[in-house]
């Protein structure tokens, strides 16, 4: 736990949802501020400088996605989205606008706390010097030497596989949209060619996961994108 309590801003119009979200976040030892509307949320985000924003996409005075775009103009505070299922497009838009993660309603307090912890951990880590060594499962990646080993054995990755891996590793826990990854790795003209991304994620799983059919680290967010789980 951090020495100074992390500040979390909850932007949600539904009082009862706000209530239990607040309880769950406070349980993580955070200070909580609440906002009911998009306008209030933006003001609070500016004045209180929170370490995490939990944002409901359907607000009475506007779309939460606009709030993210606005916020991203001057802040890189992590944003956790609360959204209803069957709105993949909203999720993608929110993530593309700069949100970090999302929870699908209804969600349990356990899930919420896990996401909050992960996002706050990333924040506290950002101040440290970044280590070029990343380890997950039985895999070790040395980003400075571009060496990947699995259970001590070197693993050969193609250029694109390596670029995909390092992009995913750079933002652990964060959901990266397909569009985002395609643009980053293949370039803007490949944005519609999602099968490239899928095939190469498959390659990474084949080479780095213990059971490629039930991956533990390179997770699919169906219809949205991918997440690297250390």
């Amino acid at each position: 736990m951090n020495a100074v309590a992390a500040k979390v801003l909850i932007v949600e119009d539904e009082k009862q949802i706000r209530r239990f979200v607040r309880m769950a976040v406070e349980e993580e030892g955070c200070q909580v501020a609440e906002a009911e509307t998009m306008t209030q949320g933006l003001i609070d985000a500016g004045s209180r400088k929170p370490d995490l924003v939990i944002l409901d996409l359907g607000l009475p005075d506007g779309n939460g996605i606009d709030l993210i775009r606005d916020l991203r103009g001057w802040s890189d505070v992590p944003v956790l989205i609360l959204s209803a299922r069957s709105q993949e497009n909203d999720k993608i838009d929110a993530l593309d606008a700069g949100a970090d993660d999302y929870l699908t309603k209804p969600f349990s307090v356990g899930e919420l706390r896990a996401r909050v912890r992960a996002l706050l951990r990333r924040r506290s880590r950002s101040g440290e010097t970044v280590s070029p060594l990343v380890e997950f499962g039985r895999v070790a990646v040395d980003l400075s030497r571009r060496v990947v080993t699995r259970a001590g054995e070197p693993v050969h990755l193609t250029q694109i596989e390596y670029r995909l891996l390092s992009t995913l590793l750079a933002q652990p826990g964060k959901v990266l949209t397909q569009r985002n990854l395609l643009r980053e790795i293949w370039g803007p003209s490949y944005i519609e060619s999602s099968h490239y991304l899928r095939v190469y994620v498959g390659h990474l799983r084949q080479k780095l996961e213990d059971d490629p059919t039930q991956p533990k680290h390179f997770l699919t967010e169906t219809g949205v994108g991918y997440r690297f789980q250390p």
Binding site: E14, K105, V109
Partner: peptide, 19 residues
Amino acid sequence: HDLRTPLTAMVGLADSLFL
């Protein structure tokens, strides 16, 4: 949306009793 909102509150509030 209208059905899911109270359900989300119910699930979360029940959980919050543990806290």
